[in-house]
Design a protein around this nucleic acid. Sequence first.
DNA 1: TGTACAAATGTTATATATTAACGCAAAGCA
DNA 2: TGCTTTGCGTTAATATATAACATTTGTACA
Lengths: 164, 164
Amino acid sequence: MSDTFGQTVFEAPGHDHDACIRGALARADALCAERGLRLTAIRRRVLELIWDNHRPTKAYDLLSAISAERGNAAPPTVYRALDFLLEAGLVHKIESLNAFVGCDAGHERGHPKFLICRRCEHVAEIPGPAVDSAIAREAERSGFTVDHETIEIGGICRRCAAAD
Amino acid sequence: MSDTFGQTVFEAPGHDHDACIRGALARADALCAERGLRLTAIRRRVLELIWDNHRPTKAYDLLSAISAERGNAAPPTVYRALDFLLEAGLVHKIESLNAFVGCDAGHERGHPKFLICRRCEHVAEIPGPAVDSAIAREAERSGFTVDHETIEIGGICRRCAAAD
DNA sequence: TGTACAAATGTTATATATTAACGCAAAGCA
DNA sequence: TGCTTTGCGTTAATATATAACATTTGTACA
Ligand SMILES: [Zn+2]
Ligand SMILES: [Zn+2]
Ligand SMILES: [Zn+2]
Ligand SMILES: [Zn+2]
Protein backbone atom coordinates (compact mmCIF):
# COMPACT_ATOMS: atom_id res chain seq x y z
CA MET A 1 0.00 0.00 0.00
CA SER A 2 1.59 3.29 -1.01
CA ASP A 3 2.02 6.19 1.32
CA THR A 4 -0.25 9.08 0.60
CA PHE A 5 2.01 11.84 1.84
CA GLY A 6 5.61 12.88 1.64
CA GLN A 7 8.18 11.62 -0.78
CA THR A 8 6.88 8.16 -1.53
CA VAL A 9 4.07 8.98 -3.90
CA PHE A 10 6.12 7.04 -6.39
CA GLU A 11 7.28 3.68 -5.09
CA ALA A 12 10.21 3.86 -2.72
CA PRO A 13 13.48 2.10 -3.69
CA GLY A 14 12.83 -1.00 -1.55
CA HIS A 15 9.29 -1.39 -2.85
CA ASP A 16 8.04 -4.97 -2.38
CA HIS A 17 5.93 -5.23 -5.45
CA ASP A 18 4.69 -8.77 -4.88
CA ALA A 19 3.24 -7.61 -1.58
CA CYS A 20 1.97 -4.50 -3.37
CA ILE A 21 -0.04 -6.61 -5.81
CA ARG A 22 -1.29 -8.96 -3.10
CA GLY A 23 -2.43 -5.96 -1.09
CA ALA A 24 -4.24 -4.43 -4.01
CA LEU A 25 -6.10 -7.67 -4.71
CA ALA A 26 -6.93 -8.16 -1.06
CA ARG A 27 -8.38 -4.68 -0.90
CA ALA A 28 -10.36 -5.37 -4.06
CA ASP A 29 -11.71 -8.61 -2.58
CA ALA A 30 -12.71 -6.80 0.59
CA LEU A 31 -14.32 -3.89 -1.21
CA CYS A 32 -16.34 -6.14 -3.49
CA ALA A 33 -17.42 -8.37 -0.62
CA GLU A 34 -18.50 -5.32 1.32
CA ARG A 35 -20.55 -3.92 -1.55
CA GLY A 36 -21.92 -7.20 -2.86
CA LEU A 37 -20.00 -6.89 -6.13
CA ARG A 38 -18.77 -9.96 -7.93
CA LEU A 39 -15.04 -9.93 -8.57
CA THR A 40 -15.14 -12.81 -11.03
CA ALA A 41 -12.09 -14.71 -12.26
CA ILE A 42 -11.68 -12.60 -15.38
CA ARG A 43 -12.17 -9.32 -13.55
CA ARG A 44 -9.74 -10.30 -10.86
CA ARG A 45 -7.16 -11.43 -13.39
CA VAL A 46 -7.47 -8.19 -15.36
CA LEU A 47 -6.99 -6.23 -12.16
CA GLU A 48 -3.94 -8.33 -11.35
CA LEU A 49 -2.48 -7.74 -14.81
CA ILE A 50 -3.02 -4.01 -14.42
CA TRP A 51 -1.21 -4.10 -11.09
CA ASP A 52 1.60 -6.08 -12.67
CA ASN A 53 3.63 -2.88 -12.68
CA HIS A 54 3.03 0.77 -11.94
CA ARG A 55 2.73 1.71 -15.58
CA PRO A 56 -0.48 2.32 -17.47
CA THR A 57 -1.66 -0.83 -19.23
CA LYS A 58 -3.37 -0.81 -22.61
CA ALA A 59 -6.59 -2.69 -23.21
CA TYR A 60 -5.11 -4.72 -26.05
CA ASP A 61 -2.12 -5.75 -23.97
CA LEU A 62 -4.57 -7.06 -21.41
CA LEU A 63 -6.40 -8.78 -24.22
CA SER A 64 -3.23 -10.47 -25.45
CA ALA A 65 -2.41 -11.71 -21.99
CA ILE A 66 -5.90 -13.00 -21.26
CA SER A 67 -6.14 -14.52 -24.69
CA ALA A 68 -2.82 -16.35 -24.26
CA GLU A 69 -3.98 -17.74 -20.93
CA ARG A 70 -7.50 -18.80 -21.85
CA GLY A 71 -7.36 -19.29 -25.59
CA ASN A 72 -10.61 -17.41 -26.02
CA ALA A 73 -10.90 -13.72 -25.44
CA ALA A 74 -12.17 -10.87 -27.55
CA PRO A 75 -12.19 -7.11 -26.98
CA PRO A 76 -15.48 -7.20 -25.05
CA THR A 77 -13.93 -9.64 -22.61
CA VAL A 78 -11.43 -7.09 -21.43
CA TYR A 79 -13.52 -3.96 -21.91
CA ARG A 80 -16.30 -5.42 -19.80
CA ALA A 81 -13.87 -6.26 -17.04
CA LEU A 82 -12.45 -2.74 -17.29
CA ASP A 83 -15.92 -1.22 -17.09
CA PHE A 84 -16.57 -3.13 -13.90
CA LEU A 85 -13.24 -2.17 -12.36
CA LEU A 86 -13.64 1.47 -13.32
CA GLU A 87 -17.14 1.54 -11.92
CA ALA A 88 -15.94 0.01 -8.68
CA GLY A 89 -13.12 2.57 -8.48
CA LEU A 90 -10.49 -0.16 -8.53
CA VAL A 91 -8.77 1.20 -11.62
CA HIS A 92 -8.55 4.52 -13.41
CA LYS A 93 -8.27 5.33 -17.07
CA ILE A 94 -5.45 7.60 -18.17
CA GLU A 95 -7.14 9.50 -20.96
CA SER A 96 -3.98 10.93 -22.45
CA LEU A 97 -2.58 7.41 -22.91
CA ASN A 98 -5.69 5.32 -23.47
CA ALA A 99 -4.46 3.07 -20.70
CA PHE A 100 -5.38 1.91 -17.23
CA VAL A 101 -3.77 1.94 -13.81
CA GLY A 102 -4.72 0.41 -10.49
CA CYS A 103 -6.08 2.71 -7.82
CA ASP A 104 -4.81 2.47 -4.27
CA ALA A 105 -5.77 5.91 -3.08
CA GLY A 106 -9.34 5.52 -1.91
CA HIS A 107 -10.09 9.16 -2.70
CA GLU A 108 -13.74 9.21 -1.73
CA ARG A 109 -14.04 12.95 -1.57
CA GLY A 110 -11.61 14.02 -4.26
CA HIS A 111 -10.94 13.17 -7.88
CA PRO A 112 -7.98 11.13 -9.09
CA LYS A 113 -4.99 13.18 -10.22
CA PHE A 114 -1.90 11.65 -11.78
CA LEU A 115 1.78 12.30 -12.13
CA ILE A 116 3.09 10.39 -15.13
CA CYS A 117 6.82 10.06 -15.75
CA ARG A 118 7.48 10.09 -19.47
CA ARG A 119 10.81 8.36 -19.00
CA CYS A 120 9.99 5.33 -16.80
CA GLU A 121 6.26 5.61 -17.46
CA HIS A 122 5.40 5.04 -13.82
CA VAL A 123 2.26 6.69 -12.55
CA ALA A 124 1.43 8.01 -9.09
CA GLU A 125 -1.67 9.66 -7.73
CA ILE A 126 -1.47 13.13 -6.28
CA PRO A 127 -2.98 12.98 -2.81
CA GLY A 128 -4.77 15.63 -0.82
CA PRO A 129 -7.34 18.30 -1.55
CA ALA A 130 -5.06 21.20 -2.57
CA VAL A 131 -5.38 20.85 -6.32
CA ASP A 132 -9.09 20.11 -6.15
CA SER A 133 -9.56 23.21 -4.05
CA ALA A 134 -7.72 25.42 -6.51
CA ILE A 135 -9.85 24.04 -9.32
CA ALA A 136 -13.03 24.48 -7.31
CA ARG A 137 -12.16 28.15 -6.74
CA GLU A 138 -11.57 28.77 -10.44
CA ALA A 139 -14.72 26.92 -11.44
CA GLU A 140 -16.74 28.93 -8.95
CA ARG A 141 -15.59 32.19 -10.52
CA SER A 142 -17.32 31.05 -13.71
CA GLY A 143 -20.37 29.62 -12.00
CA PHE A 144 -19.31 26.18 -13.17
CA THR A 145 -20.36 23.09 -11.20
CA VAL A 146 -17.62 20.45 -11.22
CA ASP A 147 -18.53 16.80 -11.35
CA HIS A 148 -15.53 15.16 -12.97
CA GLU A 149 -11.82 15.92 -13.27
CA THR A 150 -9.26 14.56 -15.70
CA ILE A 151 -5.88 15.60 -14.35
CA GLU A 152 -2.82 13.99 -15.87
CA ILE A 153 0.52 15.67 -15.28
CA GLY A 154 3.41 14.56 -17.47
CA GLY A 155 7.05 15.04 -16.61
CA ILE A 156 10.08 13.39 -15.07
CA CYS A 157 10.03 11.65 -11.70
CA ARG A 158 12.73 12.15 -9.11
CA ARG A 159 14.38 8.84 -9.70
CA CYS A 160 14.64 9.31 -13.45
CA ALA A 161 15.95 12.84 -12.93
CA ALA A 162 18.59 11.49 -10.56
CA ALA A 163 19.61 8.80 -13.05
CA ASP A 164 20.97 11.32 -15.55
CA MET B 1 -11.92 37.38 -28.25
CA SER B 2 -12.95 36.07 -24.86
CA ASP B 3 -12.15 37.79 -21.63
CA THR B 4 -9.59 36.05 -19.53
CA PHE B 5 -10.93 37.07 -16.17
CA GLY B 6 -14.22 37.35 -14.39
CA GLN B 7 -17.47 35.77 -15.38
CA THR B 8 -17.07 35.59 -19.14
CA VAL B 9 -14.78 32.60 -19.43
CA PHE B 10 -17.68 31.04 -21.26
CA GLU B 11 -19.11 33.23 -23.99
CA ALA B 12 -21.34 36.02 -22.77
CA PRO B 13 -25.01 36.12 -23.92
CA GLY B 14 -24.42 38.71 -26.64
CA HIS B 15 -21.40 36.89 -28.03
CA ASP B 16 -20.74 37.85 -31.67
CA HIS B 17 -19.49 34.57 -32.93
CA ASP B 18 -18.78 35.62 -36.50
CA ALA B 19 -16.44 38.25 -35.15
CA CYS B 20 -15.09 35.62 -32.76
CA ILE B 21 -14.10 33.35 -35.66
CA ARG B 22 -12.68 36.21 -37.72
CA GLY B 23 -10.60 37.26 -34.74
CA ALA B 24 -9.28 33.77 -34.19
CA LEU B 25 -8.26 33.42 -37.84
CA ALA B 26 -6.68 36.87 -37.88
CA ARG B 27 -4.64 35.97 -34.83
CA ALA B 28 -3.62 32.72 -36.46
CA ASP B 29 -2.55 34.56 -39.61
CA ALA B 30 -0.53 37.01 -37.57
CA LEU B 31 1.10 34.34 -35.43
CA CYS B 32 2.09 32.25 -38.44
CA ALA B 33 3.41 35.25 -40.32
CA GLU B 34 5.44 36.25 -37.31
CA ARG B 35 6.96 32.80 -36.90
CA GLY B 36 7.37 31.97 -40.54
CA LEU B 37 4.82 29.16 -40.38
CA ARG B 38 2.66 28.33 -43.36
CA LEU B 39 -1.03 28.46 -42.61
CA THR B 40 -2.03 26.71 -45.84
CA ALA B 41 -5.56 26.55 -47.20
CA ILE B 42 -6.29 23.17 -45.62
CA ARG B 43 -4.82 24.12 -42.27
CA ARG B 44 -6.68 27.39 -42.22
CA ARG B 45 -9.94 25.71 -43.17
CA VAL B 46 -9.53 23.08 -40.47
CA LEU B 47 -8.91 25.81 -37.94
CA GLU B 48 -11.99 27.64 -39.15
CA LEU B 49 -14.11 24.50 -38.86
CA ILE B 50 -12.83 23.96 -35.32
CA TRP B 51 -13.79 27.52 -34.44
CA ASP B 52 -17.20 27.02 -35.98
CA ASN B 53 -18.55 26.71 -32.47
CA HIS B 54 -17.16 26.50 -28.96
CA ARG B 55 -17.59 22.77 -28.76
CA PRO B 56 -14.86 20.20 -29.22
CA THR B 57 -14.72 18.96 -32.80
CA LYS B 58 -13.86 15.40 -33.77
CA ALA B 59 -11.24 14.60 -36.36
CA TYR B 60 -13.61 12.55 -38.47
CA ASP B 61 -16.21 15.31 -38.46
CA LEU B 62 -13.54 17.62 -39.81
CA LEU B 63 -12.73 14.93 -42.36
CA SER B 64 -16.35 14.73 -43.50
CA ALA B 65 -16.55 18.48 -43.92
CA ILE B 66 -13.26 18.78 -45.77
CA SER B 67 -14.09 15.78 -47.89
CA ALA B 68 -17.48 17.22 -48.84
CA GLU B 69 -15.83 20.48 -49.85
CA ARG B 70 -12.86 19.17 -51.79
CA GLY B 71 -13.93 15.72 -52.90
CA ASN B 72 -10.62 14.25 -51.87
CA ALA B 73 -9.56 13.97 -48.27
CA ALA B 74 -8.35 11.09 -46.17
CA PRO B 75 -7.57 10.81 -42.46
CA PRO B 76 -3.97 12.02 -42.90
CA THR B 77 -5.28 15.18 -44.51
CA VAL B 78 -6.98 16.27 -41.34
CA TYR B 79 -4.57 14.71 -38.84
CA ARG B 80 -1.65 16.49 -40.48
CA ALA B 81 -3.47 19.79 -40.31
CA LEU B 82 -4.28 19.10 -36.66
CA ASP B 83 -0.64 18.26 -35.92
CA PHE B 84 0.38 21.59 -37.36
CA LEU B 85 -2.26 23.53 -35.45
CA LEU B 86 -1.46 21.74 -32.20
CA GLU B 87 2.24 22.36 -32.66
CA ALA B 88 1.57 26.04 -33.31
CA GLY B 89 -0.61 26.22 -30.21
CA LEU B 90 -3.63 27.30 -32.27
CA VAL B 91 -5.75 24.39 -31.10
CA HIS B 92 -5.81 22.00 -28.16
CA LYS B 93 -6.78 18.38 -27.97
CA ILE B 94 -9.34 17.40 -25.35
CA GLU B 95 -8.03 13.97 -24.39
CA SER B 96 -11.14 12.88 -22.58
CA LEU B 97 -13.23 13.48 -25.70
CA ASN B 98 -10.76 12.76 -28.51
CA ALA B 99 -11.68 16.12 -29.92
CA PHE B 100 -10.19 19.52 -30.65
CA VAL B 101 -10.92 23.11 -29.68
CA GLY B 102 -9.49 26.43 -30.77
CA CYS B 103 -7.16 28.24 -28.40
CA ASP B 104 -7.56 31.92 -27.75
CA ALA B 105 -5.73 32.14 -24.47
CA GLY B 106 -2.11 32.60 -25.46
CA HIS B 107 -0.93 30.96 -22.26
CA GLU B 108 2.80 31.15 -22.86
CA ARG B 109 3.78 30.45 -19.30
CA GLY B 110 0.98 28.17 -18.17
CA HIS B 111 -0.66 25.02 -19.47
CA PRO B 112 -4.13 24.83 -20.97
CA LYS B 113 -6.87 23.88 -18.53
CA PHE B 114 -10.47 23.30 -19.57
CA LEU B 115 -13.96 23.56 -18.18
CA ILE B 116 -16.25 21.35 -20.25
CA CYS B 117 -20.01 21.57 -19.85
CA ARG B 118 -21.51 18.14 -20.33
CA ARG B 119 -24.90 19.61 -21.16
CA CYS B 120 -24.16 22.23 -23.85
CA GLU B 121 -20.70 20.81 -24.54
CA HIS B 122 -19.12 24.22 -24.63
CA VAL B 123 -15.51 24.47 -23.53
CA ALA B 124 -13.68 27.32 -21.84
CA GLU B 125 -10.10 27.68 -20.74
CA ILE B 126 -9.34 28.35 -17.10
CA PRO B 127 -7.10 31.41 -16.97
CA GLY B 128 -4.47 32.40 -14.49
CA PRO B 129 -1.70 30.62 -12.64
CA ALA B 130 -3.58 29.42 -9.54
CA VAL B 131 -4.19 25.84 -10.62
CA ASP B 132 -0.74 25.49 -12.14
CA SER B 133 0.75 26.72 -8.90
CA ALA B 134 -1.16 24.21 -6.82
CA ILE B 135 -0.02 21.43 -9.12
CA ALA B 136 3.56 22.66 -9.09
CA ARG B 137 3.55 22.56 -5.29
CA GLU B 138 2.24 18.98 -5.22
CA ALA B 139 4.69 17.87 -7.90
CA GLU B 140 7.55 19.42 -6.00
CA ARG B 141 6.72 17.40 -2.92
CA SER B 142 7.44 14.29 -4.97
CA GLY B 143 10.48 15.70 -6.73
CA PHE B 144 8.53 15.55 -9.98
CA THR B 145 9.39 17.94 -12.83
CA VAL B 146 6.26 18.99 -14.72
CA ASP B 147 6.40 19.52 -18.45
CA HIS B 148 2.86 18.87 -19.58
CA GLU B 149 -0.59 19.09 -18.03
CA THR B 150 -3.85 17.53 -19.16
CA ILE B 151 -6.56 19.22 -17.13
CA GLU B 152 -10.14 18.71 -18.23
CA ILE B 153 -12.89 19.55 -15.77
CA GLY B 154 -16.34 18.26 -16.59
CA GLY B 155 -19.54 19.67 -15.16
CA ILE B 156 -22.34 22.12 -15.79
CA CYS B 157 -21.83 25.70 -16.88
CA ARG B 158 -23.70 28.60 -15.34
CA ARG B 159 -26.04 29.10 -18.25
CA CYS B 160 -27.08 25.45 -18.39
CA ALA B 161 -27.56 25.41 -14.62
CA ALA B 162 -29.77 28.50 -14.90
CA ALA B 163 -31.82 26.92 -17.69
CA ASP B 164 -33.27 24.25 -15.42
C1' DT C 1 14.88 31.40 -65.42
C1' DG C 2 15.77 27.05 -64.40
C1' DT C 3 17.01 23.65 -61.18
C1' DA C 4 17.49 21.44 -56.52
C1' DC C 5 15.78 20.71 -52.23
C1' DA C 6 12.40 20.69 -48.70
C1' DA C 7 7.75 20.95 -47.28
C1' DA C 8 3.07 19.82 -48.02
C1' DT C 9 -0.41 16.96 -49.86
C1' DG C 10 -2.52 12.73 -52.16
C1' DT C 11 -3.28 7.96 -51.74
C1' DT C 12 -3.56 3.36 -50.04
C1' DA C 13 -3.30 0.54 -46.42
C1' DT C 14 -3.02 -0.69 -41.74
C1' DA C 15 -2.89 -0.26 -36.70
C1' DT C 16 -5.18 0.74 -32.53
C1' DA C 17 -9.28 1.60 -29.62
C1' DT C 18 -14.07 0.92 -28.54
C1' DT C 19 -18.85 -0.51 -28.88
C1' DA C 20 -23.20 -2.99 -30.64
C1' DA C 21 -25.88 -6.94 -30.88
C1' DC C 22 -27.25 -11.48 -29.92
C1' DG C 23 -27.36 -15.92 -27.72
C1' DC C 24 -25.91 -19.03 -24.11
C1' DA C 25 -24.57 -20.22 -19.46
C1' DA C 26 -24.09 -19.53 -14.68
C1' DA C 27 -25.59 -17.44 -10.43
C1' DG C 28 -28.93 -15.67 -7.35
C1' DC C 29 -33.61 -15.70 -5.77
C1' DA C 30 -38.67 -17.13 -4.90
C1' DT D 1 -37.57 -26.10 -9.34
C1' DG D 2 -38.49 -22.45 -12.26
C1' DC D 3 -37.73 -17.51 -12.99
C1' DT D 4 -34.80 -13.66 -13.51
C1' DT D 5 -30.58 -11.29 -13.57
C1' DT D 6 -25.91 -11.04 -14.54
C1' DG D 7 -21.86 -12.39 -16.80
C1' DC D 8 -19.64 -14.23 -20.70
C1' DG D 9 -18.64 -16.00 -25.79
C1' DT D 10 -18.83 -14.62 -30.30
C1' DT D 11 -19.22 -11.93 -34.42
C1' DA D 12 -19.27 -7.79 -36.42
C1' DA D 13 -19.09 -3.01 -36.86
C1' DT D 14 -17.58 1.60 -35.72
C1' DA D 15 -14.24 5.09 -34.12
C1' DT D 16 -9.62 6.92 -33.78
C1' DA D 17 -4.95 7.35 -35.48
C1' DT D 18 -0.65 6.31 -38.04
C1' DA D 19 2.68 4.17 -41.59
C1' DA D 20 4.51 4.26 -45.99
C1' DC D 21 5.25 5.91 -50.37
C1' DA D 22 4.09 8.73 -54.53
C1' DT D 23 3.24 13.31 -56.28
C1' DT D 24 2.90 18.07 -56.14
C1' DT D 25 3.93 22.62 -54.50
C1' DG D 26 6.64 26.13 -52.64
C1' DT D 27 11.22 28.26 -51.82
C1' DA D 28 16.03 29.21 -52.37
C1' DC D 29 19.68 29.79 -54.95
C1' DA D 30 22.93 29.17 -59.07
ZN1 LIG E 1 4.02 -1.93 -6.45
ZN1 LIG F 1 10.53 8.10 -14.01
ZN1 LIG G 1 -17.24 32.49 -30.34
ZN1 LIG H 1 -23.50 24.37 -20.60
